[in-house]
């Protein structure tokens, strides 16, 4: 797959950070407004996809990026499990995923115990998964058997 013209590359460079920030906003406000880890993760993956579509497949770069994304996904799942285990530990071995942090006040940004942290972890996991799928579809599709 070839990249596009210089205009598209430049515009996508300008727009990608905005999309990424929007995804982060949706993740961090997931417990107050519509959205959350799943929606924000897919939006952040959209920023990656736009960048790859505009710049074409420069194979060595994409391979490195894919390795990083795989690490991010595995780390996110491990973090989710660690959170669950901490809940088990703090509740005295009774409840898996017990909400052990201070809950705060309803409607504030810092509230809901560890729900925002879980949102971040799920967002990282979904973002890495979908970006990896897209890279695999675009890059390894053209790989021929030697």
């Amino acid at each position: 797959m070839k990249g596009m013209t210089i205009i598209v590359k430049k515009i996508s460079q300008i727009i990608c950070p905005v999309i990424f920030m929007f995804g982060l906003y949706i993740i961090l406000h997931g417990h107050l407004t519509p959205g959350g880890g799943f929606a924000g993760g897919v939006i952040m993956a959209g920023a990656f996809i736009l960048q790859i579509l505009a710049n074409g497949n420069i194979l060595p770069d994409l391979r490195k990026e894919e390795e990083g994304l795989e690490f991010m996904e595995s780390a996110a799942i491990l973090g989710f499990l660690i959170l669950a285990g901490l809940g088990l530990l703090f509740s005295g071995g009774v409840v898996f995923f017990a909400n052990f942090l201070d809950k705060g006040e309803l409607g504030k940004l810092i509230s809901g115990g560890f729900i925002p942290i879980e949102n971040v972890v799920v967002g990282a996991e979904v973002c890495a998964a979908i970006a990896t799928i897209f890279i695999a579809m675009v890059v390894y599709k053209d790989e021929e058997k030697k």
Binding site: P34, N99, G104, G113
Partner: peptide
């Protein structure tokens, strides 16, 4: 009132039924 999450769907996904999310 238990989870203190204003978005009820997030409260269900990540607190009551976090095991499903795993």
């Amino acid at each position: 009132q238990h989870t203190k999450s204003a978005n009820l769907v997030t409260g269900v996904v990540l607190d009551f039924r976090a095991y499903d999310t795993l």
